[in-house]
Design a protein around this nucleic acid. Sequence first.
DNA 1: GTGGTCTAGACCACA
DNA 2: GTGGTCTAGACCACG
Lengths: 130, 130, 130, 130
Amino acid sequence: MFIELDFQSETPIYEQLKTEIIVGIASGQLTPGERLPSVRQMASDIGINLHTVNKAYTQLKEEGYLLIHRQRGVVVNPEGPEAMTKERQAQLRQILRPLIADSLCRQMTEKELTTFIQSIYDELKEDRSK
Amino acid sequence: MFIELDFQSETPIYEQLKTEIIVGIASGQLTPGERLPSVRQMASDIGINLHTVNKAYTQLKEEGYLLIHRQRGVVVNPEGPEAMTKERQAQLRQILRPLIADSLCRQMTEKELTTFIQSIYDELKEDRSK
Amino acid sequence: MFIELDFQSETPIYEQLKTEIIVGIASGQLTPGERLPSVRQMASDIGINLHTVNKAYTQLKEEGYLLIHRQRGVVVNPEGPEAMTKERQAQLRQILRPLIADSLCRQMTEKELTTFIQSIYDELKEDRSK
Amino acid sequence: MFIELDFQSETPIYEQLKTEIIVGIASGQLTPGERLPSVRQMASDIGINLHTVNKAYTQLKEEGYLLIHRQRGVVVNPEGPEAMTKERQAQLRQILRPLIADSLCRQMTEKELTTFIQSIYDELKEDRSK
DNA sequence: GTGGTCTAGACCACA
DNA sequence: GTGGTCTAGACCACG
């Protein structure tokens, strides 16, 4: 799997790494039970600090995306994260509300918006079929 | 207009304030040409520092949401921000991709997702009709 | 003569007014000895504060552009301002240096620059011939 | 690189600092990719507050002159700012028009003017060859 | 150690 | 009274 980071970005490296892995899982590029590179391996692969990888892995473990076995290393959790809850949905709403409001102010119609969302959705599923 | 901030949140206060104002404009609670409280007024209203308000106002001015008349205060720009560009859309895609990926992993279907988006959209438009 | 002000601009109104008058003189739209509207007249004409007009007029008088007679009102000084001095030229250099540096960084060539300057020069002289 | 500020000047310190850096880049004293002092370092070097430096750096980042690596500090953007656009050129015209008008009124000829501009241009390029 | 954020208090130009 | 600027000092996330 190919990890792409933007060091100029203002979003923290560990967040970007988490994002890449989550997208990898969602798109099926990372399959349930698949093993990920060790913390050290991943760190040297993409040229970042070991602690940074560790932070990403640990948080993904807490969110149910990964399992960290002391011996067997890091694998994609076949169970996956817990299903969408109402709390999480409310949280997501808080994040999306300003983004949608901004799009609205920029004259994006509802149809354009849903089409746009769908295109992202499809892009993920497309990778999955590969 | 009612401004609601979460001081415990890790998102900066000035960002939250920007969000509140953008949502206010999108939902029509703030109308084109309407005057906003002065930086000092707003700051004391919501109990934060005037510089924090100033930062939010200044950035919203740069984004085309507000006009800042030298001594006459701050008003909602009737022109509004520039229309959605391709670059901005690409940027939005970067933000939405991980959110959608996460929702996908949590077994949210595409239909649930679009319904969800629509409900946020409607919520904004609803306020507008008031 | 037509005065055009931008109330959104961050350059002070009185500066803009001064600029308009200087350009008017340079372009010959205002001729030596010509009478300008009184402070009160000008203020009401363009809808700004009386003090603002006064500030512009006073400074232009100090710079040699205008004469202010108590009875006869405000007229364009036939003598004009003092000729360009070395000090003033040094000052002008300080203002132009960053502008030219910026243009350079934005890949404007020297030829483009001088052509550009010339076009502004010609625009002024053109008005003069009217 | 040597930064020279005039604390008596009415132009804001952060503007002067921006100017110095832009001129430094244009003249080649600051090379693409070169690292600038940290905000704290620069601030103590020239005896001003770190927030003032930060404002200058941030604005230069937004204009494409600098890159700000999260924790690795500030470097000169090898890409540089976006090329001169028509809008920016129109803006520049607005700034130059009164300056040229003033010079005209002070009996500066077109030839003197272009020679003058060229001398500034050459001064910048001269530093570049060092 | 780096930049980002927030607070606080002060002075100034502008209108 | 308005926003703009500067200073000062503090805390935090990041790596």
